[in-house]
């Protein structure tokens, strides 16, 4: 069985879209506390369009699936999460090299996620601890890499990544925002979860759910 193919990544994108739609109001509520109250609506619109684009033109290979998601998010989200998530998927697509050996698929996916994460750092000029999506994505990449290096199966490694992302999201609550609209609030941004970290945790959770049973 091919572990990381276009169908698997389409399932991941679909599950992320489902979670974003389900948590749309929660994301917007988080964003209304420290941002401009549009994160849930913007990302829901973008991910709905991304799923529609994948259905309209089913991708031939996994990198093409990620590229379609990237360009659709860039075009439809409108807010800062458009270029940030767009860059994540664009760089992940560029780095994804699954090759022919399915036993390397886990590592290929990990390398793609790491490239996406590095892309978000470059685009946003942010770092961990700034109260952004990086605070969920960074720990997730680390946990994924560590689990694979320890010989864990893809399932278990993605589960560890999802757990690390959720912990990273929760850890943004006391932080003072240093990037984006929330940074204008200074110390008043503390005491709220970061909406970007919350949606990024959903992205990793969706991967763990959608790719379960694939290795």
């Amino acid at each position: 069985m091919t572990v990381v193919d276009a169908a698997a990544l389409t399932a991941w994108v679909r599950e992320f879209a489902r979670l974003v739609h389900e948590q749309r109001d929660t994301l917007t509520q988080l964003d209304s506390a420290i941002g401009d109250a549009d994160h849930g609506a913007n990302l829901d619109r973008g991910m709905t369009a991304a799923v529609a684009a994948l259905e309209a033109t089913p991708p031939d290979d996994p990198a093409a699936a990620l590229k379609t998601v990237a360009t659709t998010l860039i075009k439809t989200v409108g807010g800062a999460s458009g270029p940030l998530y767009g860059t994540f998927f664009l760089r992940a697509a560029g780095a994804l090299d699954v090759g022919t050996d399915p036993t390397h698929h886990g590592r290929a996916l990990a390398a793609a996620l790491r490239a996406g994460y590095d892309g978000v750092i470059a685009r946003g000029k942010a770092e961990r601890g700034d109260k952004t999506m990086l605070d969920a994505l960074g720990p997730a990449c680390d946990a994924f890499d560590e689990a694979l290096a320890a010989g864990k199966a893809l399932d278990e490694a993605l589960g560890a990544a999802a757990e690390a992302a959720a912990q990273g999201r929760d850890a943004t609550e006391p932080l003072i925002a240093r990037k984006g609209r929330a940074s204008y609030l200074g110390e008043r941004s503390a005491g709220h979860l970061d909406p970007g970290a919350a949606s990024a945790a959903l992205l990793v959770e969706a991967a763990a759910t959608a790719l379960a049973g694939r290795g």
Partner: peptide, 9 residues
């Protein structure tokens, strides 16, 4: 804001 990020993208 996002205008800067989108221009770079």
């Amino acid at each position: 804001g996002s205008a800067v990020l989108s221009a770079e993208t």
